[in-house]
């Protein structure tokens, strides 16, 4: 088994090479952008075509941006958890890149979950905000995201910041089941689960299908933005390496001459 094919890296190992990863992004990105725009258009059209809900009236349409934002906020965190495991267990070169790039996107979706939930809560609950378990644990998620972004930016050494952030990501992951089950464990103003629940979704099909299409559109949007952000992070690291190389060359002109 000494052929080129046998020596050729495959799967995740192949993607450890930044050049190969960037080439893959270049191929995949146009398809992702087109699919995202298409699904978002279909989802929005379906969402605005639904009849009014018998209890919530027209405001039920807010669900089509609120729920997918919440799903993506938690989904992005799970991407960071797999990145953290990749850093600490497998030491995959792109694991920290994936985790770090997901943080601002996850923070944006978390903010949207809180903002759209608050806008929906005012007409339905009569209040913008209440310190119940679901809302509070979701606010904690936003704080964790912001803390991690600050940590990644504060520690200059990439390997050190990757390890520190990975530990914080894994500790912060405890908040994900708390968010998920808060509406079952505690008495909350927020309603219980209506899509991912034992016994199947409680939503009527004419609300469920547009919601699933919007969920899929947001998922594709997340993948698109995440790949673009990962590409930026790889370039940032290449710039940093090049700048260090330049700085070493300036400090040691003899070494620079001999290395040519």
């Amino acid at each position: 088994m000494t052929t080129d094919a046998a020596n050729k890296p495959s799967g995740l190992t192949a993607l450890a090479n930044p050049t190969r990863f960037l080439a893959l992004v270049r191929i995949v990105l146009p398809y992702l952008v087109v699919s995202t725009v298409l699904l978002l258009s279909i989802g929005l059209w379906m969402g605005f075509s639904v009849p009014d809900d018998y209890q919530q009236g027209r405001t039920v349409r807010i669900m089509f941006v609120h729920v997918p934002s919440v799903w993506m906020a938690m989904g992005a965190y799970m991407v960071m958890v797999s990145g953290a495991l990749g850093v600490l267990v497998w030491r995959h070169p792109l694991a920290d890149v994936a985790a770090r790039s997901a943080a601002p996107i996850g923070a944006a979706f978390t903010f949207l979950g809180l903002a759209t939930g608050s806008i929906w809560g005012r007409p339905m609950w009569g209040t913008w905000w209440v310190w119940d378990a679901r809302l509070t644990s979701f606010l904690v998620l936003l704080i964790i995201y912001l803390g991690l972004i600050a940590l990644w930016n504060a520690v200059e050494e990439p390997a050190k910041s990757a390890r520190m952030a990975a530990v914080v990501v894994l500790v912060g992951a405890l908040n994900i089941p708390i968010i998920r089950f808060s509406v079952e464990w505690f008495t909350t103003l927020h309603q219980g689960p209506s899509v991912m629940r034992a016994g199947g979704p409680s939503l009527a099909p004419h609300f469920l299908y547009p919601l699933l299409v919007m969920g899929l559109a947001f998922l594709l949007l997340f993948f698109t933005l995440h790949l673009m952000a990962m590409r930026n992070e790889i370039l940032r690291r290449q710039i940093r390496t090049a700048q260090r190389k330049a700085a070493r060359g300036h400090r040691n002109p003899v070494a620079r001459e001999t290395s040519k």
Binding site: T59, V65, T116, W120, L225
Partner: peptide, 19 residues
């Protein structure tokens, strides 16, 4: 409640576009 619906969709579009 049109203002609430518009605000929710508007803020989502604005944040995702800005990102």
């Amino acid at each position: 409640y049109f203002g609430f619906i518009l605000s929710a969709f508007g803020i989502t579009a604005a944040v995702l576009l800005a990102l």
